[in-house]
């Protein structure tokens, strides 16, 4: 298989396989949670569960003062790499063209130098959270194989994408191929790991908010 054949395979059939695993996996896992349902609450409602649920989805986007003070580093580095990851994923022109082609929707891109800088900051933040995880005794104790795997598959697309954009390390075409492959690895690992929090966090927040809202408790 020549390099261009490999490249076209990675852009074609390999991406189809990764998409299949990703979408089937995510849909199955979300539906499993939803279909299982929750125990019926027979108590008289003191407030609106739905409003509480929806409010909590938003309110938990912002860290409360106590958490921010207790683990300042985790909160800040965590926000930086999450926002940075999403910005590079969603606002880089070639990525938007991919979404336009596969989902039929597009939106304006950010200037390339902005994406470039964001990627660097995100990479630094990701390295910082890894170092912190290893150095912090409690975090290290709580971390298992999956935590490091998830870190790696998140880090690789950013790193290879950065290299591909600057056309360094490998020849450009090979680097783009490695970049797409790393994204496919991310997609394949996604449904089976903690990466599912991308979707389940909204369900968890809604459930928590719903319980509290129904009881008339502010969250």
């Amino acid at each position: 298989m020549s390099e261009i054949e490999l490249f076209n395979w990675i852009r074609g059939p390999a991406l189809q396989i990764a998409t299949l695993i990703f979408v089937v996996g995510v849909v199955v896992r979300i539906l499993e949670v939803l279909v299982l349902g929750r125990k019926q609450d027979l108590s008289e409602a003191r407030g609106s569960g739905v409003a509480g649920g929806l409010r909590t989805i938003i309110s938990r986007m912002f860290p409360d003062r106590g958490t921010l003070q207790r683990s300042t580093f985790n909160v800040i580095a965590g926000y930086v790499f999450h926002v940075g990851f999403l910005v590079t994923l969603l606002f880089y022109t070639p990525h938007i063209l991919l979404f336009r082609d596969s989902l039929g929707v597009s939106w304006p891109a950010l200037p390339t130098p902005v994406i470039d800088a964001t990627a660097v900051v995100t990479l630094i933040a990701l390295i910082a959270v890894l170092v912190h995880r290893i150095q912090h005794k409690v975090m290290r104790f709580l971390s298992g194989f999956q935590d490091y795997l998830v870190w790696l598959v998140t880090f690789l697309p950013l790193l290879t994408g950065y290299f591909a954009f600057h056309r360094v390390v490998l020849d450009p075409q090979a680097m783009i191929a490695v970049h797409i492959l790393s994204v496919e690895l991310f997609m394949v690992v996604f449904p089976f790991t903690k990466l599912m929090h991308t979707f389940t966090l909204f369900m968890a927040r809604y459930y928590n908010g719903h319980i509290a809202g129904r009881r008339g408790v502010k969250t």
Partner: peptide, 11 residues
């Protein structure tokens, strides 16, 4: 950067 296969249909 767009796929060579029909990803929409796959999805």
């Amino acid at each position: 950067s767009t796929p060579t296969a029909d990803i929409t249909r796959t999805a």
